[in-house]
């Protein structure tokens, strides 16, 4: 049962990824991206990473997708079909991408990953929260604060950039 659900999720992820980059209607592409993100959130659920899956759902599916859809609304005609890429461009890109895929997959398959069977850590929200805000060993307080400053800075920057130029 678990395996079947897993395969369905993987198939959903791959298909919606491909459709995201090929769909000629921009709003549909956004929705396919949403499906892809939901699929990966499902994978995280299956791996028992509940907190990460929840964040994935709220931030990605809830925040980023909405933001993207807003910008689509602001800048393009929704019904308008996107221009297809030139044949030459897509061919060369395909070659590069295929070469990269082959190289990476062969590298992955040729590497012997060690089989590990140590005790699984409890990845409940409590443990995550404690370690994230700990400033002791293995604590992530500093990166956490840095990320929060980055968020603030990007928020201010986004407002400044998108603001209508007052001087003109």
């Amino acid at each position: 049962m678990e395996l079947i659900i897993f395969y369905i999720l993987v198939a959903g992820i791959l298909i919606s990824s491909v459709l995201t980059v090929t769909s000629r209607r921009i709003l549909r592409a956004a929705v396919y991206l949403l499906f892809m993100l939901l699929g990966s959130a499902g994978l995280f659920f299956m791996l028992n990473f509940y907190f990460l899956a929840a964040v994935q759902l709220t931030v990605y599916a809830g925040g980023i997708i909405v933001l993207i859809i807003f910008s689509v609304m602001l800048t393009s005609q929704v019904n308008e079909k996107l221009e297809a890429a030139g044949i030459k461009k897509s061919l060369f890109s395909l070659i590069a991408v295929a070469a990269g895929t082959v190289v990476c997959i062969s590298a992955i398959l040729n590497y012997n990953f060690p089989a590990v069977s140590s005790a699984e850590n409890d990845s409940s929200m409590r443990t995550i929260g404690l370690q994230l805000l700990s400033y002791k060993e293995n604590g992530y307080a500093l990166p956490f604060e840095v990320i929060s400053i980055l968020l603030l800075a990007s928020m201010v920057g986004a407002i400044i950039i998108a603001k209508r130029d007052v001087s003109k």
Partner: peptide, 16 residues
Amino acid sequence: AYVMVSGMIIIILFVL
């Protein structure tokens, strides 16, 4: 971006 990706692939090949 295309040049960058191609370069990256070449470097990966080289490293491998």
